[in-house]
């Protein structure tokens, strides 16, 4: 894990360390489609934020911008106080892990080869050992030398989790990680994410699966049409309240004009 050198440019006025993730006036357009509209969000270190919203609300775009793979049209982001455009983007990427319902794994490589490939991409000191250790944690060591295409969906997701955590990132970005998983795999992923929380990792989790994500979250933010429309503490919210928040977000935005 990377040590902080002190308050960065995004540090608060009281000298407190900058938030893990910060977005200010963030805007993103795809042609005529506005995916994000002047979005402000700060995620504190060690916090787990649940990102809710209907399809097309801008959740994946926001995660993509924080992952430094999508460039915003407006506004700025800071990761631990550093801008990926001004600082060293490679150093920032080292501190981020992305897990989605897609596994990023190569079907015709073995599980070991996949993890070793990613370990080498991240310049881990001993890629073979790192891959073996991650496989052991994922309880896949006995199938380490089988091609990934022979794995079940649940096993592939376990391997994908091992891949995302291989370089011990400080921030985890999760885009629909529970999608397509059976109950047992969801339980295992929840347990794994709880461990990451205990280790102090920051999480930003976009999902439609309220029940699976709620126990992990400290805060819930809701997006609608690229705008942040609700920001609540997760404590005290049950599944019904979350569904209510989600339902409100799916209603068409108010136009401001009242019907006569």
């Amino acid at each position: 894990m990377t040590a902080e050198a002190g308050p960065g440019p995004g540090a608060g006025p009281d000298g407190a360390p900058p938030p893990a993730l910060l977005a200010r006036g963030l805007g993103k357009r795809y042609g005529a489609l506005v995916a994000l509209h002047g979005l402000d969000l700060a995620v504190r270190r060690g916090e787990c934020v649940l990102l809710l919203g209907p399809n097309g609300a801008g959740k994946s775009t926001l995660l993509g911008i924080f992952a430094t793979i999508i460039r915003p049209n407006e506004g700025r982001i800071a990761i631990f106080g550093a801008s990926p455009r001004e600082g060293d983007p490679a150093a920032l990427r080292r501190r981020i892990g992305l897990l989605s319902h897609q596994t990023f794994l190569y079907d015709h490589l073995t599980a070991f080869e996949n993890l070793r490939f990613y370990a080498r991409l991240y310049s881990l000191p001993d890629p073979d050992r790192a891959a073996a250790s991650a496989l052991r944690s994922a309880r896949l060591l006995e199938r380490a030398h089988d091609l990934v295409r022979t794995y079940s969906r649940g096993m592939q997701q376990r391997l994908a989790i091992a891949r995302a955590l291989l370089h011990a990132p400080d921030i985890l970005l999760l885009d629909e990680p529970f999608s397509g998983l059976d109950r047992e795999s969801i339980d295992r992923l929840q347990e794994c994410l709880r461990e990451e929380r205990r280790a102090g990792r920051t999480c930003l989790l976009a999902t439609h699966d309220f029940a699976a994500a709620r126990p992990l979250a400290d805060r819930v933010v809701v997006l609608r049409a690229g705008r942040l429309v609700a920001d609540r503490q997760a404590r005290g919210l049950d599944d019904a309240s979350l569904e209510g928040l989600f339902r409100d977000a799916t209603l068409p935005p108010a136009t401001g004009a009242q019907a006569p």
């Binding site: 490679a90 981020i96 992305l98 794994l105 990613y118 991409l121 991240y122």
Partner: peptide, 18 residues
């Protein structure tokens, strides 16, 4: 095409390599 399938390209783009 192989990199776009399963969003594998994101795994590479998120890594620190040039």
């Amino acid at each position: 095409q192989i990199e776009r399938e399963k969003d594998r390209i994101l795994g590479i783009l998120m890594s620190p390599i040039d």
